[in-house]
């Protein structure tokens, strides 16, 4: 399958949640997957096994080189953590970036910066569009979120999401 041009900059949440679902390889359809250095440490602390296959999945461990004043300005407003800050600095550095995060504040900051951002659920559902997972496989993963992952999602909202996926694909 042809890879898209987007460079993924990953926050810790989706790395952990996708690994909890044994679905980290859903990120490999992108041109490049960058794990900011700070995020790498966070994942290593909370779920080290998620990084065991980092080399096979071509994850690139990278520090931000340019520090955006806009990200610095947004940091206290959205109470951004170190990993989110570095991820956003990298997003500004790479123009065609896609931030993968499950953190609302980080997504708000990304919006302010004009950076595209999506979360774990987006990556899961995208797998149907990209034909890397069947609809039934993705539905199974969505159903497993409450029991198999640390991602919090209101039960009725998850049911709504599942209904939408069933109906739309």
């Amino acid at each position: 399958m042809e890879k898209t041009k987007a460079i993924v900059i990953a926050d810790a949440g989706p790395i952990i949640h996708l690994d909890e679902l044994n679905s980290l390889n859903l990120l490999t359809g992108f041109d490049k997957i960058i794990i900011p250095e700070t995020v790498w440490h966070e994942v290593q602390h909370h779920r080290p096994q998620a990084l065991h296959h980092a080399a096979d999945l071509a994850f690139v461990r990278q520090s931000a080189l340019d520090f955006s004043p806009q990200v610095d300005a947004l940091t206290p407003i959205y109470t951004l953590h170190a990993g989110e800050q570095e991820a956003l600095h990298l997003c500004v550095e790479f123009k065609n970036s896609l931030l993968i995060t499950d953190d609302t504040a980080a997504r708000l900051a990304a919006k302010s910066l004009g950076v595209a951002a999506h979360g774990t659920l987006g990556i899961l559902v995208r797998a149907i569009r990209e034909q890397t997972r069947s609809k039934s496989e993705v539905l199974e993963l969505l159903c497993a979120i409450p029991t198999q992952t640390t991602l919090h999602i209101r039960a009725s909202l998850l049911a709504e999401v599942i209904g939408k996926v069933e109906k739309n694909t």
Binding site: A117, H118, L121, G122, V125, R129, K164, V165, N168
Partner: peptide, 10 residues
Amino acid sequence: FIQEDIEWGL
């Protein structure tokens, strides 16, 4: 954001 994710995903 989750609703947006689903739209984007689909």
